[in-house]
Simulated assay, not measured.
Amino acid sequence: MTGLQTAALLLFLLSVTYIYRKADIKAAFAAAPTRHAIVNATALLLLFWLFRLQTSLGPDIHFLLVTALTLTLGFRLATLCATLCLLIVCAVGTVPWAMLGVHGITTILIPVGLTYTVYALSFHRIPRNFLVYIFLCAFIPAALVLGVSMLSLAGYYVLEGIYDTHAIIDNYLMIIPLMLFPEALLNGTAITLLVVYKPEWVYTFHDKFYFDD
Rank of each mutant, 00 (worst) to 15 (best):
A8R: 02
M179R: 05
L180T: 00
P33S: 05
L194Q: 06
L159M: 15
V196P: 01
M179V: 09
P141Q: 05
L47C: 10
V89G: 09
A138Q: 00
Y172D: 10
T17F: 15
P127K: 14
I38E: 02
I175R: 10
G161M: 09
T117W: 15
S15M: 07
L50R: 11
C137A: 03
L84A: 04
A91K: 04
T106H: 13
L13M: 09
T34V: 13
V196F: 06
F139G: 00
A142L: 05
T79K: 01
F29W: 14
T34Q: 12
I25C: 04
H206G: 10
G155I: 01
I169W: 05
L50F: 12
I176C: 00
L65Q: 03
D213P: 13
Y116A: 00
Q5N: 12
V195I: 13
D24E: 07
I61N: 05
G93W: 03
G188A: 08
A7C: 14
K198P: 08
L84C: 02
V16K: 09
L144E: 07
F211D: 14
G101K: 00
A78P: 06
V102C: 14
L114R: 05
Y116V: 01
G3I: 01
A78L: 04
T117D: 13
L146P: 00
T17K: 11
H124G: 11
F12G: 08
Y20V: 02
A37S: 11
Y18P: 11
V148A: 11
N40T: 14
L109D: 03
Y156Q: 06
L44Q: 07
V132E: 12
P33T: 05
V148E: 04
L100F: 00
A30P: 12
E200Y: 13
T94A: 09
L11D: 08
T117C: 14
I162E: 02
Y119A: 00
R125D: 13
L47Q: 10
L57R: 12
L159Q: 14
L178F: 15
L194H: 10
P111E: 05
I19C: 08
T107Q: 07
E160I: 08
L136W: 08
E160R: 10
A154R: 05
P111A: 10
L144M: 09
T192G: 11
G93R: 02
F211M: 10
A78C: 03
L50Y: 09
Y203G: 12
L45R: 01
F75M: 05
L50P: 08
L69Y: 07
A120Y: 07
P177N: 06
L53W: 15
L13V: 09
V89M: 09
P127Q: 15
L87M: 13
I110R: 15
G74V: 04
L185T: 04
C81W: 09
C137W: 10
C90L: 00
D212N: 14
V195K: 12
W201D: 03
L71G: 05
I38F: 02
Q54D: 07
Q54E: 11
Y119K: 01
Y210M: 03
